[in-house]
Amino acid sequence: MNRDGAAPTMKGGQFNTDPIAAPNEAATAALSQAEFELFAELGRPRAVEAGQVLFRRGELGTTMFIVASGAIDLDFGDDLVTKRLGPREFFGELGLLIGDHARSADAIVAGAGLLIELRHEEFQRLVDRNPGLVCHFLRRAIMRVVLNEQGLIRRLRRRNQDLEAALDSLYATTHQLNQTEELIRTDELTGLYNRRGLTLRLQESRAIGMPASLGLVLVDCDRFKQVNDDHGHLAGDRVLQAVASILRSVAGPEDVACRLGGDEFCLLVASSNAGDVMRFAEFIVATAQNLMLMPQSPPAMCPVSVGACMVDPRADWNDWYARADEALYQAKRKGGNRVHWQDAALEPV
């Protein structure tokens, strides 16, 4: 605890033990000589050794201690500063005044010396002996409690402010990490998953359990190089964004649309119905054809070829891709602007 009481001063060559002290001094001074002598007369001396524990934080106590010699450390825990008390400083006064008070700190002997102990039951004897002196001591003791509480409130406010600042920083960092993760997973031009994003999504799906069956639709733009050559890369970018919009419009909440690279896209369909997967593929081709009917210069769409198939969730991506790529090759070989299904049970469109 902080020092309390009024320290003796020289007056006319003699110690002045007048207990009156200024309020700002009362909460920081040690016991006056008169107070120390009164408490020492009625208290019990106790020799202590370095490292000795007088009490622990949270323990109930009814005793006040005064340091006659040596030093005491009060450890309030957490990140609060440990306080060291020296001769004529006191601690544990609330135990003396109200009895069975929970200690607010660990009291550990820092330097061997002598303490004066005053118990709760001895308080009335102090009052009877010198009520004026005890009254002044009580005023200072109460003032110290109030100042300590005010100091604790300030520290708690600062800690809350620090905590709020830390939470704000954590939120901002988390937001940045999420944005970074999104950039890592997402194709910048189209907003679809990129190849890395698709790989991560598949890893996550395998960890929680893949659907029983999946369909894969592989999309490739026909004559895309000609769009770039004739109208420039900005026009080519708009075509790619238009293809991405088609895939985004047809994809369900469990489906995954991805730009694999260049002008190649894929749609992973969470369905066990081959007919549904085929309808997805046909819709992509038909939508691209309809957009091409709208005269625009430069063109906003080009024809697309699509390869589609069912895939085994237990197999890896390379097996899926090889099968869908074979279907896409067949669609390209037949002139493009069409769907080819890699399954003899369904006739290619």
Rank of each mutant, 00 (worst) to 15 (best):
H136N: 12
H231Q: 02
A322M: 06
F65C: 13
G58M: 14
F39R: 06
L31N: 06
T190V: 06
E188I: 13
N130V: 00
R338N: 05
A281K: 03
Q226F: 00
L240N: 02
P299F: 02
L293H: 08
S271P: 03
R338A: 06
A324L: 07
I108S: 10
F39C: 14
V349C: 04
V217K: 02
E25C: 00
S169P: 00
R259N: 07
L156R: 10
M292S: 09
Q52N: 11
A112F: 08
W317L: 14
V285C: 12
I142Q: 03
H233M: 02
T62P: 11
L247I: 10
R238H: 09
A345E: 13
E41M: 14
V306A: 04
P299M: 06
E25L: 10
R206G: 08
V127F: 07
L114F: 04
G99W: 04
A315W: 03
V306M: 05
C258H: 07
D162C: 03
V285A: 03
L42I: 15
F224R: 01
V256K: 04
V243F: 09
L267D: 07
A315K: 06
D319L: 11
R185N: 12
A244R: 02
A324V: 05
N290M: 10
G58Y: 13
R201G: 05
G191S: 09
M292K: 07
G307W: 12
E149I: 14
L138H: 05
Q330V: 08
V219C: 05
N273E: 15
F55E: 09
A322T: 10
S104E: 13
F224D: 01
L38K: 10
A281W: 08
E41H: 15
L167I: 07
G92L: 12
D168W: 00
M292F: 00
V219H: 02
H231A: 01
R84A: 12
D263Y: 05
R88D: 14
T63F: 11
L200M: 14
D187W: 06
Q296G: 00
V81T: 15
E254K: 15
L267W: 07
R206W: 10
I153F: 14
A71Y: 07
W320I: 01
H231M: 00
A165E: 08
W317Q: 04
F36I: 01
R206Q: 12
P313E: 01
V339I: 09
D316Y: 02
M64I: 12
D312T: 06
V217F: 10
I284V: 15
E204V: 03
A141L: 15
A300C: 02
C258I: 13
L218Q: 06
L38M: 13
V127L: 14
D18L: 05
V269C: 15
S305Q: 05
G86R: 10
M143K: 02
W317S: 03
A344L: 08
T82H: 06
G70E: 12
W320V: 01
T62S: 15
G252F: 11
D316K: 09
L291T: 00
R196F: 12
H340M: 01
R338D: 08
W317C: 00
A288T: 02
R154V: 06
V239N: 01
S205C: 11
V48A: 07
A6F: 09
D229V: 03
R185K: 14
D222L: 04
V250D: 09
V269R: 08
K225A: 03
C258Y: 07
G70M: 13
